[in-house]
Design a protein around this nucleic acid. Sequence first.
RNA 1: GGCCCGUUCGUCUAGGGGUUAGGACGCAAGAUUUUCAUUCUUGUAGCAGGGGUUCGAAUCCCCUACGGGCUACCA
Length: 510
Amino acid sequence: MDRKVRVRFAPSPTGPLHMGGVRTALFNYLFARKQDGDFLLRIEDTDQNRYVPGAEDYIIESLKWCGLVPDEGVGFGGNFGPYRQSERKDIYYKYAEQLVANGNAYYAFDTPDELDALRAEAEADKGVFSYDTHTRLKLKNSLTLSRDIVEEKIKAGEPWVIRFRMPEDTVVTENDLIRGEVSFNTASLDDKVLFKADGMPTYHLANVVDDHLMQISHVIRGEEWLSSMPLHILLYKALGWEDTRPRFAHLPLILKPVGKGKLSKRDGDKMGFPVFPLLWKDPVSGEQYRGYREDGYLPEAFVNLLALLGWNAGNDQELFTMDELIQSFSLDRVVKSGARFDPEKAKWFNRHYLQQRPDAWLSESFRKQLEEKDVAAGDQERLIRIVGLIKDRCTFPADLWEHGSYFFVAPGSYDEKTISKRWKDDTSGKLQAIADFFKSLDNWEAEQIKEDFSAFMNQKEWSFGQVMVPIRLALVGSSQGIDLFLIFGLLGKEETIRRIEKALQVIKTA
RNA sequence: GGCCCGUUCGUCUAGGGGUUAGGACGCAAGAUUUUCAUUCUUGUAGCAGGGGUUCGAAUCCCCUACGGGCUACCA
């Protein structure tokens, strides 16, 4: 009988969650939903020194923005709480002590300074110091000290830690759900600290204890944890939980678009794209990091692009709703190699999802932008109509202004290149004649203007090519924009004529 | 340095013994749009290298190279 699927996303609140973290959360979420399981959020704040205020709220808000709402966890309730490790502090020692009692761990009294000295010494010798099977018998711990002395030291309040006693020369093999069989020899592993001098467990202990207590069935996490998998497996064994321990799946890392290494905090600013889901302002340094949300990405686009970073459905489908992702997701289709993030493709996803949003929704965004610029948005129906006409030129909501501002504000300048290329000696005269002709029109509706204007042009024997771009220049300021007759209609007769005459004054041909 | 993981177009990837090595982003060209963008069509470009195994390797094995991760009383 299979156990209920329960997975967790377990970030540590040391700063803003970056997109790699969001992807880990996403894959956990998809896996849980697909298997009808539970998705939990556990906050791993065992390192008090690295705690950053606001980070936890940031994580929760990010998950919500992406639609990855946990079934249990900090801020979401549940029967396995508390879900913040700092609030679980009291439960870990007993397990560490149990490990000492059954010979799988030991007390160690070496101070950080002493260990640093040993590391420095080894380094000078071109070696590496490791607290392991070869060195532990030369160090200060309950393996080398008599029971009395150990008790005495503890009683005297000397700082101590509890270290895992890594077995000698045994092979740990695990079938990773993504990588397949992975083996490690314990001879190359060291005696990790499980319980710190400050009374808190380290990640390794807390993680194993909590996953067990919370009945986690699958640990889906980043590849940076792959090398600690043998330790964790050995811990489950030493604690007697081997039969119920979770299965492991290690996700490939997200790499920088260019250069070496994994995607990092500062890459975004350097390369012009966000690496965080939401804008983050560092409470200490005051530094600010851009976010996908504030940059105008839609959550469905962000989720979609993240899902395709290291996973695919096995066919040519690239566009997925959350429901489709849940339907299609499986861990065995997760790729093993690291994925270089491509900001260009991210934009392509956003463009797609932006087009899917209703015009009314986009018009609200446009209205806000106009208000911020102190420009009257005017009639709602007209605004929606404009949005419908210009949206296919937009990738982000902010592009609406770039491609639609001329409907609300007359151009302040005229593109020089277009002038020199398209504004001929006789252009001014023709435009004045056209403006005068416009004044005579009664029916100012795009289709009708087109008809009347065509007749006028025929009669004058002028070609469209000679005047269309100059008129566009007068109305828009550049050679861009939607169909000119639609612009006439949307601008209105008076404004159209006013802009043409204004351009005639400003643009002087030599 | 040690341990572990990885390597198919520039990027994300499909393909797991016999394929004209497929798709997407990007880029380029053409068509449409009397502008620009969109859209459509076409094109561009790849199995890291070397050894095996095999009638036959992108696919299986080994080596090398390269990339990545870990190597804290951080997660």
